[in-house]
Design a protein around this nucleic acid. Structure first.
Lengths: 348, 348
DNA sequence: TTGTATGCGTTATCAA
DNA sequence: TTGATAACGCATACAA
């Protein structure tokens, strides 16, 4: 005999079967009542519900998922769950999904592309109804292959993946934000502007570089290629890159940091070198966090509504879960420049 | 030619049945091979695996869960997923659970106690194999009732719940940390020390108050009750409480903030009042975040290893998932005082 | 070592 | 409107 024990009188799980017996009706009727099927009489409904509460019956969502073919579950693969920014994305998404009755499963790739692929497979095996992915590497073939095999809808979170044309995408206007930041600095008289940002293979980086370049080009010049550093999103990279650039013969007079984590590294180096933002060097970073607001002086920021961005991702996904034929969509969240005291006119 | 789509020919799912047919063996043999059952011949293994890869078979974890009675899934209810601290707890837990083959489902109560209860029920219905909970309210009867009905093991995360004696608990030595922080301030000559911390109904708050009180009592005095403010963990409360206290006739000369979020509020008020920590007022906060490290001046912190705390929670849970008879355990993570420039000797 | 057969708890189809 | 019954895909007791 296959043995399973949960609750219930004799050690086996309390199921609809017992409820049906108690109410003196058929198993199928219990199911209908519990699923609000239209064709149930009031007397049937009350008899069943009485039995349900007497026995303290609890539905088994696993069995339900198997039978229905849908798990009411959505996966979200993020690159770094401990980054408060990702935490806010996931909060926005989770709130929206909850409202629709979906449970979000959050997974962390730790910026490892192999992990992306693994997780995509695991989610497929778990039969999620949809997937939101902020890939560690938007080109990695294994990951793309795994995602292509997924029949559930996909939303790419701030990533480009031409090989996944069936996916919806949510992004932020990084190019516009950095364009405004660069214009702001150029207007203040800075010409040696450094930009330190993430991996060059990721959309946010590509967009930021584009915005940076556009600002210079609009003035008939080219951006200083020696002052552009792409690499990764972590503090250590920000720290090293800042150090490097400031030790040059002609150091930058302004720095643009491409993320909150990079900002931590940039500030570590500046503090170590006793350079004060807003006085000795101009500083702009991306995404508003307490550190930026409460730093002395407060730091100028390219801001976006992170909670909302998560919510939009969830909406795009739900749209396609509900309507299989809905075409993939692209949504972009706007950015805005919050000018604070870390940027100042250069005096030559 | 391996079929690339996991849907079978007729649109229905590709199952072990097809694999068995393709390999010319019984359905059960496929299952045995895939589950590494000891009694399988090498020839059987290779035949089955060949068919599996030819057909691109993918297991259905939902069906497997139903049959096995275990979902290889663990729930984690946190009060505020967007707080970087909780994000780190969950990262530590997820990493540990992953290693053991479990998938973590993170849920956010937003510090709403009704949400705790709802989520506990949902997780029960989803048949999670275990649950880690950082309750919004450790007394709320509905939540306690829901948790009591869960037959899967529970780990309380930095919470006390005497009504749940079957649960393991992981906590941090908040009392010791605050005791050291208070001693530090008293040694520096401060006597009007304010403490602003979370809800008085939660363990961390209770422990902090205890540590605060102990420090004074060890010196034969009592802590200044008018300077203790408990309330909530958010920045708004920190901002208001700080404001209140500083506008009194005899304001504190030092402030202890009970969380990273409260710190944000405290600093907002101090900045607004142009009071500089480390010069005009001494400041200690709990949990090291970039803001504390990179603030000017850097802020003295009661530190704990958050990632590790998450990992320990996962370990306690796995211990009881694997051995049903294992007794509940209590683990405590140590805290340490990181003395920085925000604390200084008072000059009267 | 392998095959046969059953049931996990639910939903959906079909008659009644 | 209700009831009987057949899947959903898999893992296991048992027979061979």
């Amino acid at each position: 005999m296959p043995q399973t024990n949960r609750q219930g009188r004799n050690g086996s799980e309390l199921t609809m079967r017992e409820v049906a017996e108690r109410a003196g009706v058929a198993l199928s009727s219990v199911s209908r009542v519990l699923n609000n099927h239209p064709d149930v009489s009031n007397s049937m409904r009350s008899r069943v519900l009485a039995a349900v509460s007497e026995l303290n019956y609890e539905p088994n969502l696993i069995a339900s998922s198997l039978r229905r073919g849908s798990t009411m579950t959505v996966g979200f693969i993020v690159a770094d769950i401990s980054n408060p920014l990702f935490a806010e994305f996931s909060k926005g998404a989770a709130t929206e999904l909850d409202l629709a009755g979906y449970t979000m499963v959050l997974a962390n790739s730790e910026f490892k592309r192999e992990r992306d692929a693994q997780l995509a497979r695991l989610f497929r095996w778990r039969r999620v109804d949809g997937l939101i992915v902020s890939l560690a590497d938007q080109e990695y073939p294994e990951t793309i292959a795994e995602l292509q095999r997924l029949e559930a809808p996909i939303v790419l979170f701030d990533r480009d993946a031409p090989k996944l044309p069936q996916a919806s995408t949510v992004t932020a206007d990084h190019a516009g934000g950095i364009r405004r930041a660069t214009d702001h600095l150029l207007d203040l008289g800075h010409s040696r502007i450094a930009m330190i940002t993430g991996p060059s293979s990721l959309r946010p980086t590509q967009e930021r570089v584009r915005g940076f370049s556009n600002a210079y080009r609009a003035r008939g010049s080219r951006y200083p290629a020696d002052l552009l550093r792409t690499g990764s999103f972590d503090a250590a990279f920000g720290e090293a890159a800042t150090s490097d650039m400031l030790l040059r013969q002609s150091p930058p007079t302004a720095i643009i940091s491409g993320s909150n984590q990079l900002l931590v590294g940039v500030l570590r180096t500046l503090h170590r070198m006793s350079l004060r933002p807003g006085r000795d060097i101009a500083l702009v970073s991306c995404d508003d966090v307490p550190l930026a607001e409460l730093h002395h002086p407060p730091i100028t920021i390219v801001h976006r509504d992170t909670i909302n961005m998560g919510a939009v991702a969830a909406q795009l996904l739900l749209e396609r879960i509900r309507d299989v034929d809905a075409p993939p969509r692209l949504a972009s969240v706007r950015t805005e420049l919050l000018v604070r005291d870390s940027t100042f006119p250069i005096t030559t």
